[in-house]
Amino acid sequence: MALDSDTKLNSLGFAKPPSETRVVVAMSGGVDSSVVAAKLADEGYDVVGVTLQLYDHGAALAKKGACCAGIDIHDARRVAEEKGFPHYVLDYENIFQDAVIDEFADSYLAGATPVPCIRCNERVKFKDLLETAKDLDADCMATGHYIQRKIGPNGAELHSATDARRDQSYFLFSTTPEQLDFLRFPLGHLPNKDATRALAAEYGLSVADKPDSQDICFVPNGDYASVIEKLRPGAAEPGDIVDHEGNVRGTHNGVIHYTIGQRRGLGIGGLTEPLYVVKLDVDAKQVIVGPKEMLSTRTIPVREINWLGDEPFDSRKEWHVSVKVRSTRPPREAIIRPLGPDTAEVELLTPEEGVSPGQACVFYDSESSRIFGGGWIWRGY
């Protein structure tokens, strides 16, 4: 329906009063999503808070620094009570196990370095939870992610957060155009995290000084190997550490204990130069090591591409963009050559070190803050 030129949109982009606009807020129990819920409630929106229980929160109560744990459910509920809007806890343990944890374990055992937070956003929060929001007759769903949604000439676009240090675009590249129509990210424009905490204090939230979560929620202290051993008992088998010429340089207790680019903890003595993990051969149960220059990669195969450009992905032979191959690295200039509607070869203009299958390759506009989607790196080097 065409809007009259005098029709005013509310802050969430709807041509009606906030009180008539229902918004489901995905509440993790942390500062960010709590501020989003409080802000929208303060502006008069019909707010419904929803928190997901993703795993046994009895065990999670003892784990600090993770999201979606038992204490976080309590904190989210308390914020809802403080601000006077309804709050629901949904049991998503089975969905999370099937959609995220099992794939994480299988990918690791296959020698990849998975990013479960991306799969959680893609398969749980922005899929099942988003559908739940629609079932609740919500007009949109808001989250505390640091990313921006802007309206361009062809509809909603995904853009990086104003604060590059907090930007979460790497973890949200798989957001589809249909999901983007329904999602809102009220914090993406803020200059820094201090501004978020200032808002939390302004709204009098009990979580204003709560520390940020650091680890993957089901991986205590970043110890991936111990989680894999628990999920897949007996799957880690010993084997040899060999150099790039095939010489045995040592032994290992399982490929799952190693990642591409690793230097420390190899247990190889008498080296004249440092050696790094350059490849993991799961079938041969080998950890292959070599000099640092062997980590450099210029060509990256990518699949399961989610494209957010205005033209079809494979309508051109090349796309000149910037890409990220790790969440902690800045975007680098690259050329994407489509091989089909959702597969491509990415050529880095400057080689990157430690590119690993299982990681994401995210596409950025080199001349603006816009994100063109991305895909999954799928073959070892």
Rank of each mutant, 00 (worst) to 15 (best):
I336Y: 00
Q214E: 14
V25I: 10
Y108P: 08
A236Y: 07
V36W: 08
V207C: 05
A37H: 07
S322A: 15
K63V: 12
A161V: 01
Q168I: 04
R232K: 09
A195W: 01
D310W: 11
R232S: 06
S226Y: 10
V48H: 09
D6Q: 14
S226D: 13
A133H: 04
S206C: 09
L205V: 05
H145D: 03
R264E: 14
L280M: 11
E229L: 11
L129R: 02
Y276S: 11
E345K: 12
H252A: 01
S356Y: 06
R77Q: 11
K83A: 07
D310S: 15
Y203K: 00
R379G: 15
E103N: 13
V362W: 07
Y45N: 02
D75I: 00
E82D: 09
Q97N: 15
R326H: 15
P220F: 12
G270D: 06
V227G: 10
F85G: 00
G375Y: 10
P186Q: 00
V277A: 09
R326N: 15
A41I: 05
I118W: 05
G239N: 01
L199V: 04
E345S: 11
I371W: 08
L52E: 04
K8D: 09
G250M: 00
D46Q: 04
D91P: 01
P220N: 09
C67D: 14
S366Y: 14
I95N: 11
T196I: 12
G246H: 00
Q148P: 03
G58S: 10
Q359G: 12
T272L: 15
G354H: 02
L348A: 03
H244R: 06
D163H: 00
Y224Q: 15
P357R: 04
H252C: 00
G30F: 06
I228T: 08
P18D: 08
K279P: 10
K16H: 11
A105Q: 04
G270S: 05
I305V: 10
H257G: 07
G309C: 07
R370T: 12
L190Y: 07
Q286A: 14
C140D: 03
V302K: 02
A225L: 10
S315D: 13
I371R: 08
D106F: 10
Y55E: 13
K230T: 15
I288H: 07
V346L: 03
G261E: 03
E131D: 13
V346C: 04
G290P: 02
V287Q: 03
I335Y: 02
V31S: 03
M1S: 13
A142N: 05
Y203E: 01
G111I: 02
E333S: 14
D365W: 09
K292Q: 15
A200W: 06
S368N: 06
D46F: 03
L129G: 08
I216Y: 05
N10P: 01
